[in-house]
Amino acid sequence: MRNIFVDTERIRDLNSGLGQTCLHVGQELVRQQPAGTSLTFLVPPGQTGVFGEPSGTLHYREASWRYKLRSPGWFDVWHNLHQDGAYWPAQRPDRLILTINDLNFLERTDYSEAKKQRKLAAVQRRIDRAQVLTTISDYTETVVREHLNVPAGVPLQTVYIGVSELPVPPVEPPAALINLNKPFFLYLGVLHPKKNLHVLLAIAQAFPDYMLVLAGRNDNPYARHLSEQVSQLGVDNVLQTGPVDELTKSWLYAHCEAFLFPSLSEGFGLPVVEAMSVGKPVFLSRLTSLPEIGGREAVYFDSFEPADVVETLRAGMRDYYDDPLKAQRLQWQARRFRWHNTAKQYWQLYSGE
């Protein structure tokens, strides 16, 4: 029996991209689990059973400070699904796999150079313990090789994360959106400075007959700063929804005019793939991993000056409606990224292939 341990503790925050990754990777690993293997998942307290009832080949360990200090048991394979994992094996497994999602802290202007170097050093220590490294985009692999030392003989490969089929959206808008009675442009994700959302306020000004919907966690100073800017501009067509559930998210994707994602730093960009999967036009920055994910079918902001942002949206929407096959090609681009493929590649790594 080959014993595999996977750290999915971050499902504690399903409103984050990492939480969604842990959830869907875990689900797909169980679906594809081959005979002769045993899976153990690290999960938050109270989440035992999240991937199926415990059995002789499916086990759970609940995260705790005791488990952080001393992880009992021995495993053939230990997989940390992100580089900041706090849980490490007390006994060295035959194969420790570390997935590096991003090094986005290198782009943060609010971090000193000393802090960036400390964080790089912490990631390097984890790399030095691993026998296999994966990243979630070719861009992230390039950044890792540029800023960190990958030991000779340690493989480093890209394993793309995926997108699940969205649930069928409700016919009527969810209760939280009952007053959304205009066509709207959508951003979905945490409201954070690196997402560069303030540049979208020019769109709210230029398109008063449309709403700008910013959906995601907004309990932070940047979200409050956005609200203050909206008040100063005197516009009334910007809606911060806060976190949304899966049905609400599906409704938003299905009914938006376009998806806007001017982020400054992304290791992947899961909401972009979700929007493309339903054939919606996506407008992205040209930075970090986003051109790799959006491909030729996305529209890119070449400048964040207000007039340029507005003109990029106008031109992109004209092209979208003038091209009857555009929505279909966007869906084809999204199909490159599937959780089934993610888990398949991980199982190959677990078996030593």
Rank of each mutant, 00 (worst) to 15 (best):
W251R: 08
A176Y: 00
K249C: 01
A152H: 11
H225E: 14
D7M: 04
V25S: 06
T37N: 15
F304D: 01
F5G: 04
C22E: 08
Q240A: 09
A215H: 03
I100W: 04
Q345S: 13
V150P: 10
I127P: 08
Q47G: 02
T140K: 03
R61E: 15
G46K: 10
V50F: 06
H147N: 12
G52N: 07
Q240C: 05
Q20R: 15
Y160E: 00
L214G: 02
T40Y: 10
A307R: 09
P89R: 01
L200V: 08
H192W: 05
D110P: 03
E266N: 08
N3Q: 14
E353Q: 14
S277E: 01
R224V: 07
S231Q: 15
H59Y: 02
I161S: 00
R12S: 14
R108P: 00
V310N: 12
I161D: 00
L14K: 08
L260T: 03
R336L: 13
V143S: 08
L247E: 08
L180G: 09
E353P: 01
E62W: 02
S285Y: 05
M211E: 14
Q124R: 13
S227V: 01
K194W: 01
Q240E: 10
R335L: 09
Q157M: 08
V50T: 15
G267W: 00
Q32V: 02
A175W: 02
Q27W: 02
G52I: 05
P93C: 09
W88R: 14
F105I: 07
H24E: 13
R335M: 11
L270C: 04
L212A: 09
H79E: 12
Y320T: 05
S55D: 08
A152C: 02
L188S: 12
W65K: 10
K194Y: 07
L264F: 11
L197D: 06
L226D: 03
H24A: 08
A152S: 14
E292A: 09
I97K: 03
F259A: 06
S263E: 06
G73K: 05
N181T: 15
L69I: 06
S265Q: 09
Y350F: 15
L103T: 02
P281Y: 05
G242A: 07
F301Y: 14
W347M: 11
Y346G: 02
P45I: 05
V171M: 11
Y346I: 12
T140R: 04
I4L: 14
G352C: 08
S64A: 10
Y350T: 07
G352D: 11
T248D: 00
A122E: 13
T134I: 04
P45A: 15
P324A: 12
P169F: 04
Q91K: 07
L200N: 08
K249N: 02
D76I: 00
